[in-house]
Design a protein around this nucleic acid. Structure first.
Lengths: 223, 223
DNA sequence: CCATAAATGTCGATT
DNA sequence: AATCGACGTTTATGG
């Protein structure tokens, strides 16, 4: 990894066109060839970047003209860094990163609810996780206390997209299973998602992550 | 901006929990207090980060114990960096960045089409750009050759979300304007978006950006 | 490779 | 603060 602090201006042309006027910035050249341009603030997103695979060609400055870094990829995107002054330049051997271990996302919620689907409604029992339809898998397919089918969509955050997604599943399943209710389960809901769900007769169930984890599974695997 | 190359392990707890085993990484501390952790590859997204506003407290190591960086924000998210070995540590004064100048996105398409809406259909004339409804603005409201209303949704990429969005507008407008057709305009379409649009009797119009720009406006402003 | 859905999404505008 | 839509979304995952 090469770290350069430089006064530079930058032009990007690709999915859109951007220009960065001259200023002092951090330029990162990673081992895989990718280039990041960071300012001294403004979140984790670089001002400009080019992801690997890409090529970096340095055109040396001749005293008069500034140094040019031409970064490009195969799809025709290009980033040109006009380097006017280099204030720092260092190289570092980092080695491979073992990578990030994540915990606690939507899949985990699905696992927990699959074995505790009674929290979604009285007498609910699980038919299948990831019930396949030709427009994608339904998170959970259950039966309610009266034996009717229920399609369950699970999200960390309940937003309008989730209601639309579940609506499509319900329309799709309704014809094959003969009437399916919808339950939208999430840790938190946007108000508009609740409104749309109510409009579509979809029940919203707010989940409590800690309570779910502390709860004994009621549909235990018997082996 | 402080740049540190260090062997470290990192734990984040907040919207989810993550752990990074010990490895050599780049730690960036920006002037606004934000902290980024980068590996030597893998796109522009840091392995871990904490955006401003946040606080960084360094607990000095006592020879035995490693140095601890505790980064936290007001919403209770925390990132703990266990610094085992510092290989590089430098500080740089970058100053304020003048910021990015962007050009050429969806808004530009909307501007072009507003004055060339005949490319969307025979005899189309513009009623209004950003026609307001209580669920959001319709990109373009037009009339077709027979005087019927047409709601136009414009995207760079035509995907299923755009069809859903336009569908909501059509349902909303249908009651007030008495029957509105839908046109979905984009530079490119996903196959499934086309299928869903056809299902909803929405016409998909594929745009040619270069051709649009080269075309004379047919609804010129008369001043 | 295309397609979909998730993301610590982020970011900006607007209410 | 909440919400909505765009993003050079990026990223992971499955066909």
């Amino acid at each position: 990894m090469r770290l350069v602090i430089a006064r530079c201006s930058i032009d990007y042309a690709g999915r859109l066109s951007t220009h960065l006027p001259s200023a002092v910035r951090l330029l990162i050249v990673k081992a895989d060839g990718s280039v990041l341009v960071h300012a001294d603030g403004g979140g984790y997103k670089p001002l400009n970047w080019m992801s690997a695979p890409c090529t970096l060609v340095e055109e040396p400055g001749d005293g008069q003209r500034a140094l040019l870094w031409r970064v490009a990829n195969r799809t025709g995107e290009s980033m040109t860094i006009t380097v006017e002054e280099i204030l720092h330049d260092s190289d570092h051997d980092l080695g491979l990163d073992p990578g990030l271990v994540k915990d606690g996302v939507e899949k985990h919620l699905q696992e927990l609810l699959a074995e505790r689907c009674h929290v979604l409604g009285d007498g609910f029992t699980l038919v299948r996780r990831e019930y396949q339809t030709d427009i994608g898998p339904v998170d959970l397919l259950c039966r309610d206390g009266e034996g009717g089918y229920v399609a369950v969509e699970i999200k960390r955050r309940g937003e309008i997209d989730g209601v639309e997604q579940l609506s499509r599943y319900l329309q799709r399943l309704g014809s094959s299973l003969g009437g399916v209710r919808g339950v939208f389960a999430a840790l938190a809901f946007r108000p508009q998602a609740k409104v749309l769900a109510a409009d579509r007769e979809i029940v919203c169930v707010q989940l409590d992550y800690d309570a779910l984890r502390g709860m004994e599974p009621l549909n235990p695997r018997l082996f």
